[in-house]
Amino acid sequence: MQYPGRIIKLGETDGKIVVALKKQLNAMLALGNQPALKLDPSNPTFGPSTKQAVMQFQSRHVDNHGAPLKVDGQIGALTWEALFGQASVSASSTAGDNFLGRVLAVAAGEADKKVRERPVNSNRGPEVDVYLKTAGVPTGLAWCVAFVYYCFNKAAQDAGRPNPMVKTAGVLDHWNRCAKEKGARRITKAEAIANPGLVKPGMVFVMDHGGGLGHSGLIERVAGGIIHTIEGNTDASKTREGGGVYRLSRKIVDINKGFVDYTGR
């Protein structure tokens, strides 16, 4: 059964989903051998016993990337995928429009070049300096958003069209200005968790670390509750102060600010 694109939880009213869920939980938890705990698939109600079974499943299983599931009794894309298999959640590697596909192609080229800071931990280097200069800020600054802006700008120049992205190197400055100044769509964390299908390749993810600090990158591919990204100023530890351009993967639930969509801009 395909993931319905929203959180399934206590009080769910779609009986077909609840029945399928109960049957799968009975099978995955071997509740047929425990008559007192076995869920009744003929009852299309998501009640406390179903929530308890979901939490039991979550405590015993990991997501598709081997990380523990959140034990909350609610079924998002990651828990659904663990229950019903990888084919049950949507996956997309196609950007929202042709221009965003060009942006991703530029970013992929930078990732393939294995851009790194030189010297190490300096926020400098031949390519890094170009990213920052393109965004209109001095060299030596944090450069994750400058990298994103560079990719947008290079794609726009190659296509002979205006750049739709806000010219900035600031994570939260971008988030605060993108809708009003450029007409971009902002998708909040809550909206993305409730419906992971809203998150598409070509979007910019935004994380807020407090104190005016944050981190951003481009989404190259989406698979259920996981985004596969191309990011600057990071490394394999997923830090906001890493030394290069990397391809990484993150959970949608870990993107605590939201997503910016320039489709059609």
Score class of each variant (00 low, 15 high):
Tyr3Ile: 13
Gly5Ala: 08
Gly5Pro: 09
Arg6Gln: 03
Ile7Phe: 09
Lys9Ile: 02
Lys9Tyr: 02
Lys9Asn: 03
Gly15Glu: 11
Gly15Ser: 13
Ile17Val: 15
Ile17Phe: 04
Val18Tyr: 05
Val19Leu: 12
Ala20Leu: 00
Ala20Cys: 07
Leu21Phe: 04
Lys22Thr: 10
Gln34Asp: 14
Gln34Leu: 11
Pro35Asn: 09
Pro35His: 12
Leu37Ser: 13
Pro41Ala: 15
Ser42Val: 13
Asn43Pro: 05
Thr50Ile: 11
Thr50Val: 15
Ala53Val: 04
Ala53Gln: 03
Gln56Lys: 06
Phe57Cys: 07
Val62Pro: 02
Val62Arg: 12
Ala67Cys: 05
Leu69Ser: 05
Lys70Ile: 05
Lys70Leu: 07
Asp72Cys: 12
Gln74Pro: 12
Gln74Asn: 12
Ile75His: 01
Trp80Arg: 01
Leu83Gly: 08
Gly85Val: 12
Gly85Tyr: 08
Gln86His: 07
Ala87Val: 07
Ala87Trp: 02
Ala91Leu: 01
Ala91Trp: 10
Ser92Gly: 14
Gly96Cys: 12
Gly96Asp: 09
Gly96Leu: 05
Asp97Arg: 03
Asn98Trp: 06
Phe99Trp: 01
Leu100Phe: 06
Gly101Lys: 01
Val106Leu: 06
Lys113Glu: 13
Val115Cys: 03
Arg116Ala: 13
Arg118Met: 15
Val120Cys: 00
Val120Gln: 10
Ser122Cys: 13
Ser122Tyr: 07
Gly125Leu: 08
Asp129Ser: 11
Val130Phe: 06
Tyr131Ile: 09
Tyr131Glu: 04
Lys133Arg: 14
Pro138Arg: 07
Pro138Cys: 10
Thr139Gln: 08
Gly140Cys: 04
Leu141Ala: 06
Ala142Met: 09
Ala142Glu: 04
Trp143Cys: 10
Val145Cys: 13
Phe147Asn: 03
Phe147Arg: 00
Phe147Glu: 03
Ala155Gly: 08
Ala155Cys: 10
Ala155Phe: 07
Arg161Pro: 11
Arg161Leu: 11
Pro162Ile: 14
Asn163Asp: 14
Pro164Ser: 09
Met165Leu: 14
Val166His: 05
Lys167Asp: 09
Ala169Met: 12
Gly170Ala: 09
Asp173Gln: 08
His174Met: 15
Asn176Asp: 15
Ala179Phe: 06
Lys180Met: 04
Arg185Glu: 08
Arg185Thr: 15
Arg185Asp: 00
Thr188Met: 04
Lys189Asp: 08
Ala194Thr: 00
Pro196Leu: 10
Pro196Ile: 11
Lys200Ile: 13
Gly202Trp: 00
Val204Trp: 01
Val206Phe: 06
Val206Ala: 04
Gly212Met: 01
His215Gly: 04
His215Asn: 02
Ser216Ala: 06
Leu218Asp: 09
Arg221Gly: 00
Ile226Cys: 07
His228Glu: 06
Thr229Pro: 01
Asn233Glu: 11
Thr234Lys: 02
Asp235Glu: 05
Asp235Val: 14
Ala236Glu: 15
Ser237His: 05
Arg240Tyr: 14
Gly242Phe: 02
Gly244Ala: 09
Arg250Gly: 08
Arg250Asp: 15
Lys251Asp: 13
Ile252Glu: 03
Ile252Pro: 01
Val253Pro: 05
Asp254Thr: 14
Thr263Val: 11
Thr263Cys: 07
